[in-house]
């Protein structure tokens, strides 16, 4: 093609002057750190599904005991050891109230003349497993969340002070942490449970007594990293107090790491609670957590596997969901890992 620009009608074009103001304008709305994190978290299917799943479990742990017509601790001896039976699903051939009795498959509900349905079956004392499982979930989650919150609080304060003030303070505080972390967690937890009256409080104290050291290490590292940066120096030059620097300038930067760390302490706490209950150091009857329910179920595994099945499934789902959410959050909040 030959170049015949001159032949083009000049008036068909208008010159667009370069506007210096326009050049500075950012066409897309600016994204804050948290919006950005939420965006990358949304892309992580596993984390989102886990988040929904976990939300459902929390919801059920509250409304589950309410929608069940039976109280978690009400015993109906005549209804003992019934297998699960749920309307609709029973047509599929599972959860239809059929159990083995003396080696034969029988509808135990018909045999024992039970009119009602027990969705998750009943245990050896005729207690409704549905309300017990959700009540137990509630207790387990409560213990885990409180323990994680206390860990976080102590860890952040300890690590923050140690990292921010540095010097001799840091030296002394770190030597203490070094010795504490040397003591195996398992040993401390068991010893503390032994000297206290068993119960929710004892478990929470035992879990938090050394649990905070991990958080304090992470927070200290982060504070050390950020406190020597220019924006902190600038704030200090402008006369900001220590409290203001810590809360306004350091905390927002450390928050991501704190959240990630907490997301991994919670499943750890859930596991330890269940573990302690399983070896008989946990909650005492009639209180139930997922761990004690699994322990009860385990004793009857040969004859009544459903008593073990439901709490074990709920516990496993919570653990899987938390690990996936934690992984997703770490990828979303940790800029180092960003692709």
């Amino acid at each position: 093609m030959t170049q015949n620009y001159e032949k083009l009608p000049q008036d068909a074009f208008t010159r667009i002057p370069r506007d210096t103001q326009e050049a500075e304008k950012i066409s897309k709305p600016s994204v804050s750190f948290w919006q950005d994190a939420w965006r990358s978290l949304k892309k992580n299917k596993g984390a989102i599904i886990s988040l929904i799943l976990f939300g459902l479990i929390v919801l059920m742990s509250f409304i589950g005991p309410m929608i069940s017509p039976y109280e978690p601790n009400d015993q109906t001896i005549t209804h003992a050891n019934l297998p699960p039976k749920m309307p609709v699903i029973e047509n599929l051939g599972i959860m239809d109230g059929v159990g083995t009795l003396g080696g034969r498959e029988v509808d135990l509900y018909e045999m024992k003349n039970v009119e009602q349905n027990y969705w998750f079956g009943t245990d050896g004392l005729g207690r409704d497993m549905f309300s017990r499982v959700w009540k137990g979930t509630q207790v387990s989650l409560f213990i885990a969340f409180v323990a994680a919150a206390i860990d976080m609080l102590i860890g952040v304060i300890y690590g923050g002070i140690s990292g921010y003030f540095g010097g001799r303070v840091d030296d002394v505080m770190q030597r203490i942490v070094e010795i504490l972390t040397g003591i195996p967690n398992l040993v401390v937890v068991i010893l503390f449970i032994l000297i206290m009256d068993p119960g929710i409080l004892a478990i929470i104290i035992a879990l938090t007594i050394t649990g905070w050291t991990g958080m304090s290490r992470v927070v200290r590292g982060q504070v050390l990293k950020y406190k020597s940066q220019e924006f902190v120096l600038a704030a200090r030059t402008l006369g900001a107090s220590d409290t203001r620097i810590i809360w306004k300038h350091l905390m927002p930067n450390v928050l991501g790491v704190i959240i990630i760390n907490t997301m991994f302490t919670i499943p750890g706490a859930i596991f330890f609670e269940a573990f302690l209950s399983f070896i008989g150091l946990g909650l005492q009857a009639p209180d139930a957590s997922l761990g004690t329910l699994i322990n009860d179920g385990y004793k009857l595994i040969q004859y009544q596997p459903h008593i073990l099945l439901f709490p074990a499934v709920v516990l496993s789902l919570i653990m899987i969901a938390f690990n996936l959410i934690g992984d997703g959050l770490r990828d979303a909040l940790d800029p180092k890992m960003k692709d």
Partner: peptide
């Protein structure tokens, strides 16, 4: 890997 990290050993052992 996720299942192995999440499911407590006693649940797995009973299964």
């Amino acid at each position: 890997a996720i299942i192995g990290i999440s499911i407590p050993s006693f649940v797995f052992a009973s299964m």
